[in-house]
Design a protein around this nucleic acid. Structure first.
Lengths: 192, 192
DNA sequence: GTCTATAACGAGATAGAC
DNA sequence: GTCTATCTCGTTATAGAC
């Protein structure tokens, strides 16, 4: 049986709630009870869909990473390196708007406490982001649309670092404009 | 009675362990039992020194912030804006060397789950850092030692954001050289 | 200042009925 | 697929002896 596209399965609704809770309170900051209460289910029902919290957490990262990579593919279609970087920053801003941290940024902070497979998935998320950014940077430099010193890999890392850090700090004040200011300064220096 | 400078009080040793655990696993990622075991004390002894985890957490941030501000005062003595920025980044690198996150960076991630007074103290830490950096930047621009567009406040925020984010990500790979690369690119663009 | 003992609660998890 | 009931363990916290 295939679900109609507009009806979320229970598993999806669990992931939606768990994702928001993880982004706002951390993986170690929410419980099955929190998710169950919000969905008006019992904890046991959650265990049916995700046997343990480790499985839920892994599904969380996998879905988030997949969704993110899909968004990056869509950005590729812009075919304008400078606009692509701006669109990339906008992905972060969208998350920040309702006071969430990047899921993997949050999990990066908690990294040492995570199940091994979640740790690996978080690292892979950042590697994928850096790789994608590096191709945008290389492409932009080849086209003359972007200017930067050093390797595209190092520049990509600086962008990821800057955006993740800007989210982390801007969230304290619930102030997306702070994020935008940092992000703009970071990216404007690259666009010719 | 005053303690000799080289003998740490029990309260200090508790803070030392709790600080390291918070920086590596998060405030929600360690327990009184963890601290007690490492110090070969009981949990009850910890409650004597810090009635509850909220008080311990607040003392943690207060001590860290005070120590950090003292370090910033020492850096002021360098009287060379570019060297001062490098020394500032070095503070972060020192923390990262044994796989710790900045205490307040970690607490920023967990911010929404913290006791109210801890939340305020974390925000104050970042405000103080930004203020200090802004004075270094203003001073450096006046002397002609630093160049940057826009306000010193906005530039200060970009520096804090970049360094915190670089720590967050570099810690994943246990790779301080990544931090150094990001930090150098961030700061070199300011030094004339 | 530190201990033993215990209370009170929350978390993750499982068995088995429906 | 969801429920009730239960288990086990970890966590915070307190009382009272030493």
């Amino acid at each position: 049986m295939v679900q109609p596209a507009h009806v979320a399965t229970t598993a999806d609704r669990i992931l939606d709630v768990a994702e928001r809770l993880t982004q706002s309170q951390g993986y170690n900051g929410f419980s099955y009870a929190d998710v169950a209460a919000e969905l008006e289910l019992t904890r046991a029902a959650l265990h049916y869909h995700f046997p343990g919290k480790a499985e839920l957490g892994l599904a969380l990262v996998a879905r988030y990473a997949q969704r993110f990579m899909t968004a990056l593919s869509a950005i590729d279609a812009l075919d304008d390196p400078c606009a692509e970087l701006a669109a990339y920053a906008q992905l972060y801003l969208d998350v920040l708007e309702d006071r969430r941290m990047c899921l993997c940024g949050m999990l990066a902070a908690e990294h040492q406490t995570l199940p091994a497979r979640m740790q690996d998935a978080v690292i892979a998320f950042f590697d994928d982001n850096e790789r994608w950014l590096a191709t945008v940077l290389d492409d932009g430099r080849a086209k003359g649309a972007l200017t930067f010193a050093g390797t595209s890999e190092a520049t990509a890392r600086m962008i990821v670092d800057g955006l993740e850090g800007a989210m982390l700090v801007a969230r304290l004040h619930h102030d997306p404009s702070r994020f935008r200011a940092s992000a703009d300064r970071l990216l404007d220096s690259l666009c010719t």
